[in-house]
């Protein structure tokens, strides 16, 4: 399915739309934090990810985009919708999927011994169906924040939705550390470990990424970005990826 210009315009419209507050500016782009939006709060986040792999003329690039709307159902439960995940490859914009996520906050990273939350996601595309569950942990030590995520996902793919002939699973864990130099500027690093299971059986090669991140906060918006190098040598996965999240509150 090709993404129409109008859809892009609508998405941009949503991103710029009125009364939106932030649940908290993100310190990380791959790692999730355990804090959720307050009841009734809406947050908008736009993701851009660039992935590249291969060498010389065989190098391939992919640009992924995501527009997410998050809403605080209660002070602990946050619902999110990825209005669209789409990518640009070979100069064409292609719609990938739409997803729904729920994050349930259990303990707070500042006032409790350890902050924790449960994360669930359902992803629907015209060629895929995916379920994902994660445990999120976090601890704040004043300006230093540590966060850890671990999760599993199951994915079904086919030529059409419902006509799935491939299934795969994945175990993932990620870790992030961030240091606040000022409320405007934070620096840190992220680490990502993924292990795929084709047909839910054989484990593939583990893929590990690590790299620095930075977060810049302004009055009404923030930008958080991470550059990740693959430290393993799995050739059919990106050897470098860069992600930026642009969040807004009015």
């Amino acid at each position: 399915m090709k993404l129409q210009k109008t859809t892009c315009t609508i998405l941009l419209g949503i991103s710029l739309l009125g009364e939106v507050a932030s649940a908290g500016d993100r310190r990380f782009t791959y790692v999730y934090e355990t804090t959720t939006a307050a009841k009734g709060e809406i947050e908008v986040e736009n993701f851009a990810t660039w992935k590249t792999r291969g060498e010389g003329s065989g190098r391939s690039n992919e640009f992924d985009f995501r527009h997410e709307l998050e809403y605080g159902v209660t002070d602990r439960l946050q619902a999110g919708i990825y209005v669209a995940d789409w990518k640009v490859a070979d100069g064409q914009a292609i719609y990938k999927d739409t997803a729904f996520e729920l994050i349930y906050n259990m303990t707070n990273p500042v006032t409790d011994l350890l902050g924790s939350a449960l994360y669930g996601e359902v992803k629907l595309g015209d060629q895929l169906f995916k379920l994902e569950g994660k445990l999120l942990l976090q601890k704040n030590f004043g300006p230093i924040v540590l966060a850890y995520n671990a999760g599993i996902e199951a994915e079904w793919e086919g030529d059409r939705f419902g006509d799935f002939n491939e299934r795969s699973g994945e175990f993932m864990e990620s870790f992030g550390v961030s240091y606040q130099f000022s409320p405007y500027f934070l620096l840190g690093g992220e680490f990502l470990h993924e292990l795929g299971f084709d047909e839910w059986q054989e484990a593939g090669d583990p893929v590990i990424y690590a790299g620095p991140n930075a977060s810049f906060r302004f009055d009404r918006f923030y930008v958080t970005t991470t550059a990740m190098m693959q430290v393993t040598a799995v050739t059919d996965e990106a050897d470098f990826q860069w992600r930026a999240i642009f969040g807004m509150h009015f």
Binding site: S22, A23, G24, D25, E33, T35, A38, N108, P109, V110, T111, N140, G142, P143, Q180, P183, L186, R217, Y222
Partner: peptide, 14 residues
């Protein structure tokens, strides 16, 4: 106090 510690620490430290 509880609100300060939980809601004012999502973006930065106290």
């Amino acid at each position: 106090r509880r609100l300060l510690a939980t809601r004012c620490t999502t973006c930065h430290a106290l």
